[in-house]
Simulated assay, not measured.
Amino acid sequence: MEKLGSGDPHQIGAYRLLARLGAGGMGHVYLARSGRGRTVAVKLVREELAAQEEFRERFRQEVQAARRVGGYWTAPVLDADTEAAVPWVATGYVAGPSLQQVVGHDHGALPERTVRILAAGLAHALKDIHAAGIVHRDLKPSNVLVTIDGPRVIDFGIARALETVTDGGLTRTGALVGSPGFMAPEQVRGDRITPACDVFCLGSVLAYAATGALPFGTANSGVHALMFRIAQEEPDLDGVPEGIADLVRDCLRKDPAARPSLDRVLERTGADDTVADGRALDPWLPSALVAQLGRHAVRLLETEDPQGAGPAEGAGPSGPPAGRQGSGPGESPGPGPTP
């Protein structure tokens, strides 16, 4: 989370911006607050993408589809203006670090029980996403947020909008669609994408959570070498606890038809009866992470109200607006806080 810069807008639609959350291939993401006081994440599309009508049309379709995603395990789409000069989408803000932050920086590999409950929560999230007719296509640790209650999935469906501006697997700006270390073989080969793609990505995420390492290595030796390993070689599951190694290995089958269904994944986690209504029924995180989440919540409160007395309801600081007024923070339900 960073302070707003001189080039950042202060208002997007009905939302007053508070801080920068990040940036990615799609655009910038901001922490914001609605006139009603709801904290949200607002994603502002890059101007060069907004200028492409093909992208805009797919973005409209994907936002509309994402609004239909229900359930408890995702960050809901609350508002959007796909017709603005610079389109944007607002989602519920999930007050927790990403799995990438947790494993890569704060804690390291997670214990088996935590990974089992992570798997159950992610399988529930993917079931809800697939029920809305969406394939996530970019499930990765930075798109999984960690909360006291359980994991939350963000950014579902958005990767598909970027595919409208691709040429041979690359965007017209030269960026890969998807995240190489967490892509499925069919994405690498440019084959038809089905929900089984997300099951493969789930396997990669679980291997990372359990070991701190990517099952097909990194792109240090080159992106194409990594993509070859994903398409042709077996995953390295050294360090994955024996109790979940077979499940992870089956998720990582090269043939989409050979991967387990999400219902079967839930059964094999052995943890489905420990999660309900978006919550782990018992504490699921190591105590050190629970303490970190508490500190994260305090920082959020300080960002929202740094002086101890925020502006009057509905008021916002002066600054250049981005886009036109959206439909307002009418809270209908999908992608989220990180790009």
Rank of each mutant, 00 (worst) to 15 (best):
P195E: 12
P185D: 12
E233Y: 10
R113K: 12
T164R: 15
P215K: 10
R189E: 15
R46G: 04
V77W: 01
G181S: 06
E186Q: 15
G308L: 06
V165I: 15
R60F: 06
T274C: 04
A159V: 01
V144R: 04
D106I: 13
L18M: 10
V177C: 11
G334H: 01
D81C: 03
G190Q: 10
K3D: 13
M26R: 01
D79E: 14
G203H: 05
P311L: 14
S221R: 14
G328D: 10
R36Q: 12
P321L: 07
T211D: 05
Y72Q: 14
F156M: 11
A131W: 02
T269H: 08
A322G: 05
V77Y: 00
P151R: 05
P317W: 05
V144P: 07
A84C: 03
L21D: 02
E267N: 04
G203K: 07
L145S: 03
D106G: 00
V177M: 10
I230L: 12
Q101W: 06
L252Y: 01
F200V: 10
L18W: 00
G27E: 06
L118S: 04
D8T: 07
P151W: 08
L176V: 12
L289Q: 08
I244W: 10
P335E: 00
R67I: 08
G13E: 08
E234W: 06
L126H: 01
S142N: 09
R152I: 07
T211G: 03
D238P: 00
W88M: 01
L118V: 05
H105E: 14
R299D: 12
Y93A: 08
M227F: 07
G278S: 13
R299N: 13
G212I: 04
F216T: 07
E331I: 00
L262S: 06
G174Q: 13
A213I: 00
H28P: 00
Q61G: 13
R264P: 04
M183A: 13
G336R: 11
E302R: 15
S142M: 02
A315P: 04
V248L: 12
T164I: 00
A225K: 11
L226T: 08
T114M: 02
D79K: 06
F182R: 06
E48V: 06
K3Y: 00
A65I: 07
R279C: 13
A280W: 08
A125N: 05
G92H: 01
R137D: 04
R116Y: 05
P335S: 09
P185V: 07
A65R: 14
D238C: 00
A120Y: 01
G174T: 14
R137F: 03
A309E: 15
D149I: 03
T338E: 11
G96T: 03
P317Q: 10
A291S: 15
V135A: 09
Q64F: 02
I117Y: 03
P320H: 07
G24D: 13
P329F: 00
I117E: 02
L126W: 03
L49K: 01
E83G: 01
K127S: 08
T173Y: 07
I134V: 14
G13Y: 01
G326S: 09
P185Q: 09
V89E: 01
E304K: 05
